[in-house]
Design a protein around this nucleic acid. Structure first.
Lengths: 205, 205
DNA sequence: CATAAATTTATACACTTGCATAATAATGAT
DNA sequence: ATCATTATTATGCAAGTGTATAAATTTATG
């Protein structure tokens, strides 16, 4: 095989992407160093040049996946100028749209999840982003209800956040695995509707 | 090793249970025929006496898991004498209680899920029970709302069922993976509350 | 209790796995 | 152009994989 050199300095990122593609198509058990190398169009030895071993590659791929999800989820809600209710609505809509809603994302998530119960370092990667995501909803809930002069306890707001989070996760699963059931934007619409019901507030625009 | 013979005719079931235990603890990649045999306290050759190969063992284990989930979910709702609202409430409560809510169940579910996208026979096993479960909620929704003289379209009832299913799935995930957050029965209570909000009906007793 | 059938173990084999190491090729500095 | 550095391939190895097969043990049957 002829030795091809990278143009930029993106081999490491390419290998991570190849890992995700391989896991998506072959499953975590099918993701061997040789198959990942195939997906990247290189030979297996190269992986050990950029990663200390397979474990580090898998961990890097998991971290990259979570990062991609977080970036998509937080799109458009950072703008502090926006009304709170609109930020809450946008968060729900973004989480219930492509690319978060897709067979690929849910498959990768499901493949990695068990590893976080076996490998402590994988658990740490998961927890890093977990708190972050959890703490998005609760402040938005508190602020949105405060706008309607509804002041709720800390405990109540936490339960609201958990309920909203559950609806979003459940619709994400259903939309990702049975996407043919939903028209464009329908899933996000149902998410906003349900969140409105739970909070007894009108989030639609 | 001394050859120990079974008392009853339950070796096959024991091997399936051992497979589930092994996958729960070691993940699907760690579930080799030798490790499964260890979990069952036999030697690896025996697996081939009861199953045509590893694939059949995995499929049997997946089918057994789904069966266990379905049995738990449908507990107490078969009784046609019960008021519909109570049957709906019981279904939600059962799905949001042990053993469906547990790290084991969600871990096994996550480990098997990717296989249903790779192996057609695994996909078939999943689909067998899928329609069955989906069709539980929608009739209960229609009947519950009809009791309040609210007649809804087929499409509307379907959307309600999808929303309820999403809440249940999402709470199931959260409760299984972060069970420490919830007191006894709290998860089921939140499920019934949320379902009540979505349907604009009082399901609590 | 002797013999056949059913169950379980033991062993071997070809193949795959992650990883190590050496050889080769491409790049950059001077 | 030369040479050191970086990147990539090629090759090999020890351990683990699923599976096949024969041997051993237990149970059932007469």
């Amino acid at each position: 095989m002829s030795t091809k050199r990278r143009e930029g300095n993106n081999r490491r990122q390419e290998l991570i992407e190849a890992t995700l593609n391989c896991i998506e198509n072959e499953g975590i058990q099918g993701a061997t160093v040789r198959k990942v190398a195939d997906y990247a169009g290189v030979t297996n030895g190269l992986i050990r040049f950029y990663f200390s071993g397979k474990d580090e590659l898998i961990r890097a791929a998991y971290a990259a996946l979570l990062e991609q999800i977080y970036v998509s989820a937080r799109a458009n809600i950072e703008d502090a100028q926006l009304p709170v209710k609109e930020r809450l609505r946008r968060f729900i809509q973004a989480t219930l749209s492509f690319p978060i809603v897709s067979p690929r994302t849910v498959l990768l998530w499901a493949n990695f999840l068990p590893l976080t119960y076996i490998d402590d370092e994988m658990a740490a990667i998961r927890n890093e982003g977990y708190v972050e995501t959890t703490n998005i909803l609760q402040p938005l809930v508190i602020a949105s209800l405060a706008q309607e002069n509804r002041n709720i306890s800390e405990e109540e707001s936490q339960r609201f956040a958990i309920k909203l989070n559950a609806v979003i996760d459940g619709l994400w699963l259903e939309g990702s695995m049975a996407g043919y059931k939903f028209q464009n934007g329908e899933l996000a619409e149902m998410g906003v509707e349900t969140a409105s019901s739970i909070l007894a507030i009108n989030l639609a625009n």
